[in-house]
Design a protein around this nucleic acid. Structure first.
Lengths: 109, 109
DNA sequence: CGACCGTCTCAGCGCTGACTGACACACTCA
DNA sequence: TGAGTGTGTCAGTCAGCGCTGAGACGGTCG
């Protein structure tokens, strides 16, 4: 039972709408299990699409779709393999991910 | 241009599917702008539903719906006002929110 | 060159989830 | 007791998103 609540209800209707668009945008991206799994797999270095698809139990084009979302958001980068350019390796953009984590930390304290 | 990539493509199909269910669950919750706004407003102490609805520009029953989602997840607590029990004040459960932030920090580094 | 491979793109479909309106509930006050 | 207020709940509706299949692209190897 909280005692610091005001004894008389005093509505505070002057509250400003907080700007949480960035945090919500990032959280909605990470909120998908496939995209969260991709970011988790890429923690230990670059991987190609087929490796991640196999690890996640998802089809390649599906993983590719989610990778495009993460790429558009700037959270991952793509680069073709030097020896066999058919393989596309993805890696995390740690700077962008750090910014995203900062927005979430600002919201969740 | 990364030079530490293997010169010959060696598929690593032994990757384990990482467990990101908790992080994805939390992120999907925070991924909604209304719920993110609620958590932001509650950073400066308890507020009743009508205050948050006014600040967010949303209807009371809609905010109440989102509060139920956050309540079921344990991120917020509800308590009726001592003087006028019609008002329901919500406050953040900092322990649960800290756990949620930990799961996201573990994923985003 | 042609066959094959890994990846990307996109229309289509199905389903989840947010918003709404109406109603019910708990409480206060005249 | 009745009206009025703040909140909760629920079915209905609809936009949005994820998954799929088919096709196209770029690259490799014979």
């Amino acid at each position: 039972m909280r005692t610091e609540l005001p004894m008389v209800p005093e509505l505070r209707l002057d509250l400003q709408r907080p700007d949480v668009s960035e945090a919500a945008r990032v959280a909605a991206l990470v909120g998908d299990p496939v995209r969260a799994g991709i970011l988790a797999i890429l923690r230990d270095g670059p991987h190609c699409v087929c490796e991640m698809a196999a690890a996640l139990g998802e089809r390649q084009n599906n993983v590719s779709n989610h990778l495009a979302r993460l790429r558009d958001a700037g959270l991952v980068r793509a680069s073709r393999h030097g020896a066999d350019a058919r393989w596309v390796y993805y890696e995390r953009d740690e700077a962008a991910i750090s910014d995203a984590a900062g927005a979430l930390r600002d919201l969740l304290g």
